[in-house]
Design a protein around this nucleic acid. Structure first.
Length: 423
RNA sequence: GACCCCAUCGUCUAGCCUGGUCAGGACACGAGCUUUUCAAGCUCGCAGCACGGGUUCAAAUCCCGUUGGGGUCGCCA
C-alpha cells in the first residue's frame, strides 16, 4: 500500500508552495487508496510555535487535505536518540562534543527520482553529517529518515529544494539498514516574475488567501495545475476527475510562476457555479464582520448575493460592491458623479421618485415598468436617465442592471436617494 | 564559486518517453457581438519550441555544447 506524508515545520504559516506539496502527496494517497500521513517536524524547540501548528492544521482542513495518521517529532526524541546510539556503537558515527556525526563513506550515490529520473552525486561533495545536535535534539535529516523509515513511507514527495538533501539522507538509510523509499522532487513555485516566492509578490500564506475570499476548491484546483495537467485541455478540474488520471510521474520538471490572475479567474468560476444559498452562507461571516447590525438571514440577502454572484472574483469583492446597500452614506465616486450626476437632471429625478412612490408592489419588474413610462412621458432615452440614477442610488457608474439594483435597495431608499441626489 | 536541477506563446501547460499530425488549450491582452453602465457570456485575433552543433530522409521530440534561470552548500527545516 502507498504511504506518503507531508511534513511541515511549525515555524511559520502554511505557505502556498507547501500546500501544493501537501496536495500532491494527498492526491497520490487518495488516487491509489493509500495513506496520507501528517508529521509535524518540530525539532527546533525555539522556533516552533503552537500558533503556527494550529494555523497549519486549520489551513490543511480548510483545503480538504485530510490525513490518516498524525505524528509529532517532539514526541519521538527517545527514538532518534536510540538510533543515534546504534550508529555510534556500530562505529558508523562518532561523537563530536555532545553531537553525533555520521561518517560519510567515499562513493557515488545513485538516486532515482520519479519525476526527473536518475541523479548521480559523489559523496566527496558531502561532508560528515550531524545526526544529533549538542543539545540532544536530532537534526532535520536524521529525524526525517528515521521517521520515514519507521512510518514505512513508500514514496517521499517534496520540493525540489530538497534534491541535495536526498543523497545525504540515503547515506543515513544505508547506515541504519533501512529500506530506501522512492523519491519525487516537485518543481518549485516561483513568483509571477519567475523569482523566489516571497511576501513581496503577494500573499504566501494559505490563510491569507482565505481571508481575501478565495474558495478552497479554487486554490486546490489552481495548485494542482501548477506542474501537472489532466491532459484534456480542461482548466477547471474536479478533484474526482483529477484523481482518476493523476500520476506523480506526469508532474513537470520546470518551476512554475504563480499567476494571481489565473487563480482569480478560477475562483470567479467556482463562485459563479456555486449554489446561491451556499454562497450566501460563505459570505455572511465576511459581511457580518463589517456590518454587525445588518440582517443577513432574510431572503433579501440572498437576492443581493444572486445579484453580485457573477461579478465577484473573490468573496471580498462582494463587500466592495454592496457598500451602498449596507450604509446610507453613499460614497459617490467622483468620476461617476462628474460624468452622470449633474444638476439638470433634478426634474427627471423628481418625476421618477414620485411615480415610484405610487408603486404598491415594488420589485424589479414594476420598477422597470414605472421607469419606462417615466422616460416615455419625458420624451427621453432610457439611457439618459439610467446612468444618473445608478450613480445616485449606488454612488458608482457601474453595477448590475438598474432595476435589480432598485429592488435590492427597496422602495423607500430608492426614492430617498433620488431626492437626495440633488439636494 | 562548487555541486545538482531545469528550459514550448508574457504566464500555466498539451505534445517529448515510442522522431513525421498547420505546435493544441487556458489566463492575460486586443477586436467584434450583446447591452441601461461595468463585468460576465459568445466569436475572432495576437503570441512560443532559448541558441549552436550533431544523429536522421525527417527533430519541439534523441545526443552534445553554449547561454539563461532555479536550488543547495547550517548542530534551520
Amino acid at each position: 500500500m502507498v504511504r506518503v506524508r507531508f511534513a511541515p515545520s511549525p515555524t511559520g504559516f502554511l505557505h502556498i508552495g507547501s500546500a501544493r506539496t501537501a496536495l500532491f502527496n494527498w492526491m497520490v494517497a487518495r488516487a491509489q487508496g493509500g495513506k496520507f500521513i501528517l508529521r509535524i517536524e518540530d525539532t527546533d524547540q525555539v522556533r516552533s510555535k503552537t500558533e503556527f501548528l494550529e494555523e497549519i492544521l486549520e489551513s490543511m482542513k480548510w483545503l480538504g487535505l485530510t490525513w490518516d495518521e498524525y505524528y509529532k517529532q517532539s514526541d519521538r526524541f527517545d527514538i532518534y536518540r536510540q538510533y543515534a546510539g546504534k550508529l555510534l556503537s556500530e562505529g558508523k558515527a562518532y561523537q563530536d562534543g555532545a553531537a553525533v556525526v555520521l561518517k560519510v563513506p567515499q562513493k557515488s550515490i545513485k538516486l532515482y527520482d520519479l519525476i526527473r529520473g536518475e541523479i548521480v552525486v559523489d559523496t566527496k561533495e558531502i561532508k560528515d553529517q550531524v545526526l544529533m545536535k549538542s543539545d540532544g535534539s536530532p537534526t532535520y535529516s536524521f529525524a526525517c529518515v528515521v521517521d520515514d523509515a519507521l512510518m514505512e513511507m513508500t514514496c517521499i514527495i517534496r520540493g525540489e529544494d530538497h534534491i541535495s538533501n536526498t543523497p545525504k539522507q540515503m547515506l543515513i538509510y544505508e547506515a541504519l539498514d533501512f529500506k530506501i523509499p522512492k523519491f519525487a522532487h516537485l518543481p518549485l513555485i516561483l513568483d509571477p516574475e519567475g523569482g523566489r516566492m516571497s511576501k513581496r509578490a503577494g500573499a504566501t500564506a494559505v490563510s491569507e488567501y482565505r481571508t481575501q475570499g478565495f474558495l478552497p476548491q479554487a486554490i486546490v484546483n489552481y495548485l494542482m495545475l501548477l506542474g501537472w495537467s489532466p491532459g484534456n485541455n480542461q482548466e477547471k478540474v474536479s478533484m474526482a476527475s483529477a484523481l482518476k488520471t493523476f500520476s506523480i510521474k506526469k508532474v513537470n520538471k520546470a518551476g512554475a510562476a504563480f499567476s494571481f490572475e489565473k487563480l482569480q479567474w478560477l475562483n470567479s468560476q467556482y463562485i459563479r457555479e456555486m449554489d446561491t444559498a451556499r454562497l450566501a452562507e460563505a459570505l455572511r461571516p465576511l459581511v457580518a464582520a463589517r456590518y454587525p447590525q445588518a440582517d443577513l438571514q432574510g431572503a433579501d440577502f440572498e437576492r443581493m448575493v444572486q445579484l453580485y454572484k457573477g461579478r465577484m472574483n473573490t468573496l471580498a469583492d462582494f463587500l466592495d460592491w454592496t457598500d451602498y446597500i449596507f450604509t446610507d452614506l453613499v460614497p459617490f465616486d467622483p468620476e461617476a458623479k462628474a460624468a452622470h450626476l449633474t444638476r439638470d437632471m433634478g426634474k427627471e429625478f423628481d418625476v421618477l421618485a414620485q411615480q415610484l412612490g405610487a408603486v404598491d408592489d415594488f420589485n424589479a419588474k414594476t420598477a422597470e415598468e414605472t421607469f419606462r413610462s417615466v422616460v416615455a412621458g419625458l420624451g427621453i432615452e432610457a439611457g439618459t436617465l439610467v446612468h444618473p440614477v445608478r450613480v445616485a442610488l449606488t454612488g458608482r457608474a457601474v453595477g448590475p442592471g438598474l432595476f435589480d439594483t432598485m429592488a435590492v435597495l427597496g422602495k423607500e431608499r430608492t426614492i430617498r436617494r433620488l431626492k437626495e441626489g440633488f439636494h
